[in-house]
């Protein structure tokens, strides 16, 4: 356990060393927030609500979803590169579990990202962008649990995709494709209730809405009461199944390395 904590800590330091990227990121997020704000302001210029959501509710949803989406991807890229350049064989000889190590590093990354990036920026958004607090303290608490689950699901999904690197070459393409699918189905761009009926039905059976839509919908009160608990239940289901699927695929992939030499 101790060594994984150490990995997380080191990762935080690594992150702190890249200050240029930190500022680039911060600035880019600010820009995105500006675009979002003006876009939705224009959308609401001739109406007061869409599907029951007033401007404040919509902008709150979009901004929180944007922040949450930044945390649902993980260290898949590192894993994919480790696989691609053949270092995975060396990593497998080391006295730790590679996946656990990567998740620990990812955790370190996310903590520092949250403290240095998302937290100050979201406070800024609260002050300047008409963002509202959760409807009740219960939904606030539920949001935190649900967001944690969402991040968990996203992290494992990311690693799952990365393992595909054993069979494909274009990592960048895979990454872009994953991002596109997630922003499609997770509700990161717009609340899923705005989508056509058939689309909502499809996404109900996919793990993506559990990453972003569920937590943010709980936050903004789109989902509440029994609905919220049901959604949370589906998150638990996805978290467990993805975890199991990841372990299975990983052991298959490792077998490929150890038997066929990668």
């Amino acid at each position: 356990m101790r060594k994984y904590v150490e990995f997380a800590r080191v990762q935080m330091q690594v992150h702190a060393a890249y200050s240029a990227w930190f500022w680039a990121n911060t600035f880019s997020i600010l820009l995105r927030m500006l675009v979002i704000y003006f876009f939705w302001k224009a959308v609401y210029s001739s109406r007061t609500e869409i599907e029951g959501l007033p401007f404040e509710g919509m902008i709150t949803y979009i901004i929180i979803a944007m922040f949450l989406q930044m945390f649902v991807s993980g260290v898949g890229q590192e894993l994919a590169h480790t696989i691609k350049d053949g270092n995975v064989a060396i990593e497998l000889m080391r006295p730790y579990n590679l996946i656990t190590r990567l998740v620990a590093m990812d955790l370190g990354d996310k903590v520092i990202h949250f403290v240095r990036g998302a937290l100050p920026l979201s406070i800024l958004a609260f002050i300047f962008m008409d963002i509202t607090l959760p409807t009740s303290w219960q939904s606030g608490l539920l949001f935190f649990i649900s967001a944690f689950m969402g991040i968990w699901i996203g992290t494992f999904f990311d690693l799952l995709i990365a393992i595909l690197a054993f069979w494909t070459i274009n990592l960048w393409g895979l990454q872009v494709m994953k991002e596109a699918v997630i922003s499609f189905f997770s509700g990161a761009l717009v609340p899923l209730i705005l989508f056509p009926e058939w689309f909502q039905t499809i996404s109900l059976f996919l793990p993506f809405q559990a990453m972003v839509y569920v937590p943010v919908a709980i936050y903004t009160g789109i989902l509440s009461g029994t609905e919220a608990w049901l959604a949370l239940g589906s998150q638990v289901f996805w978290a467990v199944s993805l975890f199991v699927l990841l372990r299975v695929l990983w052991s298959i992939a490792i077998k490929k390395v150890t038997i066929f030499g990668g």
């Binding site: 494909t168 274009n170 960048w172």
Partner: peptide, 15 residues
């Protein structure tokens, strides 16, 4: 790398 080509084009289209 034909597979790569297709994957790349497809991914950007999806994006």
């Amino acid at each position: 790398y034909r597979m790569d080509f297709l994957l790349g084009v497809l991914s950007v289209m999806l994006q």
